[in-house]
Design a protein around this nucleic acid. Structure first.
Lengths: 141, 141
DNA sequence: CGGCTTTCTTGACTCGTTCAAGAAAACCGG
DNA sequence: CCGGTTTTCTTGAACGAGTCAAGAAAGCCG
């Protein structure tokens, strides 16, 4: 996907097209599950002088528009991914924090229904599978 | 449950019995889903001079021993609960952050299996249902 | 009770994130 | 293409949850 496509994506979401946003969108697409600092680094490869605040602002705008998804497993800083719209889930390594995608078993949101919703109006079921990644489970613990 | 019972609980977990730990255990039991600051406040009602660090240390020790569970929905600070061992889940209000318990539909951990575990050895599936609580869904948004 | 180990107090500090003010860039209508 | 308006970006300070560290206190065991 080239910058012109990202531009269309931004316009379709009624967002102004700015260089920081294009760089952030590309960074998130190219680095799934990257934390903010990694996104800043990646964005600066394309746009060296971009400020950290512009990246934070862009991530907020893109998240609010639904163009990127923010995830934050317990104990982790915020992470972002560009795979959206399929309500997929994640496996997270308790030891090293590695994250991988897991397809949603049932296909569409909310993919699970609560046994008792306590009167809440639910729109999403987020699943985090906790365990140990292959590298950490073979290493001595 | 009285302090003597908490004492037994701590001993059974091979933890030293200290007044901060007893106070924290009682605070978490009495205030499900409380954040650390609330736990500190509640513990200080019983033990006025306890330091914030002692509460942090106690929460870590109790969490590591499995006597309390730490949860942290995206965007929230750490919260603790004393209901353990049943791998139950939570509904969280996107608007006000209210949390309520939801029984695990299938009964025992891991209550879900991933469609593709990527070689991870999984031990828990954590589900967060996102939506709006009754108060927030009736209020004008 | 004495000694060893763990935990608690105190206070400084880190780090991810947010706030705020002014400068710059994007967009819209003409 | 241009000016005006609005949004976004830069810069730099600030915030807050949580952690670190050193010494004092308390718990535990024989």
């Amino acid at each position: 996907m080239a910058d012109e496509d990202f531009e269309q994506v931004l316009r379709a979401a009624s967002l102004r097209v700015t260089r920081p946003r294009l760089a952030v969108l590309a960074a998130v697409r190219d680095h799934p599950h990257a934390d903010t600092e990694s996104v800043i680094d990646a964005a600066r490869r394309e746009l060296p002088e971009v400020s950290h605040q512009a990246v934070y602002d862009s991530l907020h705008a893109l998240t609010a528009a639904g163009l990127v998804r923010r995830i934050q497993p317990s104990g982790s800083v915020a992470r972002y991914e560009a795979r959206i719209g399929d309500n997929h889930h994640h496996v997270v390594c308790r030891s090293c924090g590695a994250i991988a995608d897991v397809d949603c078993a049932t296909g569409h949101a909310p993919c699970l229904t609560a046994s008792d919703d306590h009167g809440f109006i639910l729109d999403e079921a987020e699943v985090v599978y906790w365990g140990r990644c292959p590298a950490c489970s073979t290493a001595r613990s």
